[in-house]
Write a protein that binds this DNA or RNA. Structure first.
Lengths: 334, 334
DNA sequence: GAGCGCTATCTAATCGATTAGATGCGAGAA
DNA sequence: TTCTCGCATCTAATCGATTAGATAGCGCTC
């Protein structure tokens, strides 16, 4: 069994025509085909269960219909959701998605880009956790378009699609002020690069007039934020109002606060800046500024597949605002 | 710019040899090459920045090194983690991963399988949310191997890699009994198919002697479990000890319980059966039986890529046990 | 010194779809 | 009747890597 899949030539033979005509029928080809012939071809194709070989087509037409997605880690809810939307946006445009998880290693990122280029992808979507290194450079050298989503290197040629981080932070600060908070702390990442750096600067600006703003730092994991929270509570140094740069960190803060018996939102008002689906069903539910992940994914894919690359591509593209979703953790809805 | 990528022929010309020799060098080919010639070829390849065209290779050698992964939804943490591990297992074996999210639609699942087959994938990993329809059937008809992970149809020919669901449930029940609970409820999905059906049956067996076991049902979402919990609490019908079939549901229960002021674990002891990374930092942290997702992914990939398909493939393969991880939600660690 | 064996290399067919150029055929014009 | 135009179709080159078969060159042996 496992008989050889049927080819264009098989269909042509069965329909009593040439491969050219079959091809014209399959693609509504560059040339017309008589109605009667078209019928015969379609019938033959159906009977043989013909499935066009995209590899052969790709070799000839120099376009595969496949886009590579370089991800940090699909098991992180934020990146997972982004990946899902990118795949969806590509599917809507009849493209297939090759994925790879680079973790947080620039080396593995390079390696993936290399493998995707060898696979002749039509384009590359790069979701990089940090701004170190221009992973898109080899792609551009090979004439393959690339787009960064969420984050990108400073000097790169590839466009970067990001959310409106400044607006999100301003909205979060304003909302906590409405709840009466005078002093609003910020939980940033270990370094000020990428979107979180932007968020931190926006926070700096927004709380410029406040007395002694508190800046906290920990790595982007639940575990780290949990540990930090426990320590601060035990030292009596926990702020009363906090903006967490990422959902992961906010969830860790919630976990640590629960473990210490620190009530949220009564003793800690918390807002997070990602707004992944995770945030809606924490205990208590997180107030977030919701990044328009689907809009970002669509914008990125459009940029990638739009035929004419502008001479001077916009280095940074913002895709929609990050709307504030009030839930329980800030003090709303009590 | 965007000059044509260099080919085998370019390298051969530059090295003053034939394409055959270059190919032999690149693959440590089926024939040996003199050391001096090999040097010249490697130098030429490096100077030209030669990158082998995997599409051309695939056409000739009838194997692409690409595996298709049909997923329900990468933004669900359980499926996201599974996807990440499958990709990792494939990467370790030098394969690339094509992904597609089928949502919960059998129609879209079929569509994806069709597209992956057209792309000439070497195999298919299917992570299906339910047991409706044998998505692997068209692949088998085309001679492409397929494996189900997490779940699979009853009568299919493709192997199904799943966790030890019965053992997990027995462990969870036993653990709650150790905490002194006499009556242990179970939160299942809307229907008794797939792994959750197996879990429900195992629960049935484990609580067979108990007085009036309580079986709850809701769909596999945080929202549904949250709503169900609020209703039960308001009706005074909430059980004191509960096993949730999935992490998503357990997190929804936690969220609903928090909103109603029902303390966990004091008034509700809760254990969940997935054990995704999510479960470690909820408030309170969830006690879970942890499915060996990486082991499952590796087993599936091995099954897929192992050369000889056994005449009668084992219909169901279990990959490791699901160990109980005691945390706070069951009453441990107070 | 003719013949043999061995290695290193070259030539060319092949995978399956695409498509430019060549061909065949019939209708209408002159 | 013959010539021309246009449509429908066929022929064959092409994409780039792989690899079986052919060949060239060298060292040995008898």
């Amino acid at each position: 069994m496992t008989k050889r899949a049927s080819t264009l030539a098989d269909v042509a033979r069965r329909a009593g025509t040439s491969t050219a005509v079959v091809s014209y029928v399959m693609n509504n080809g560059p040339r017309p085909v008589a109605a009667a012939t078209r019928e015969r071809v379609l019938a033959a194709a159906a009977e043989l269960g013909y499935r066009p070989n995209r590899i052969a087509r790709a070799l000839r037409s120099r376009t595969t219909g496949v886009v590579g997605l370089v991800l940090a880690d699909a098991s992180n809810p934020y990146f997972g959701a982004l990946a899902r939307f990118v795949e969806q946006a590509l599917e809507w445009r009849e493209r297939l998605t090759l994925v790879g998880n680079a973790g947080f290693s620039a080396e593995r990122q390079r390696h993936l880009v290399e493998r995707f280029l060898a696979a002749q992808v039509d384009g590359l979507v790069i979701v990089s956790p940090d701004t170190a290194g221009d992973a898109a450079a080899p792609a551009e050298a090979a004439g393959v378009p690339a787009v960064y989503v969420h984050n990108g290197p400073a000097g790169g040629r590839a466009p970067v699609v990001a959310a409106d981080n400044e607006g999100a932070v301003r909205a979060a600060v304003a909302h906590l002020r409405e709840h009466g908070h005078r002093s609003i702390a910020f939980l940033a990442g270990p370094h000020d690069d990428g979107p979180v750096g932007v968020r931190r600067e926006a926070w700096d600006a927004a709380v410029a007039g406040d007395p002694a703003p508190v800046l906290l730092r920990c790595s982007y994991s639940r575990a780290a934020a949990d540990a930090l929270t426990r320590r601060l509570v035990s030292e009596g140094a926990m702020p009363r109002a906090l903006i967490a740069a990422t959902d992961e960190q906010a969830i860790g803060v919630l976990s640590g606060a629960w473990a210490c018996g620190l009530p949220v939102p009564d003793r800690l008002a918390l807002i997070s800046l990602d707004g992944t689906p995770e945030s809606a069903y924490t205990a208590p539910a997180l107030t977030v500024t919701e990044q328009p992940l689907l809009a970002m994914a669509e914008r990125a894919v459009d940029l990638l597949l739009s035929p004419g690359t502008p001479a001077e591509p916009p280095a940074r593209v913002e895709a929609g605002v990050a709307a504030l979703v009030p839930r329980r953790s800030c003090g709303c809805g009590g």
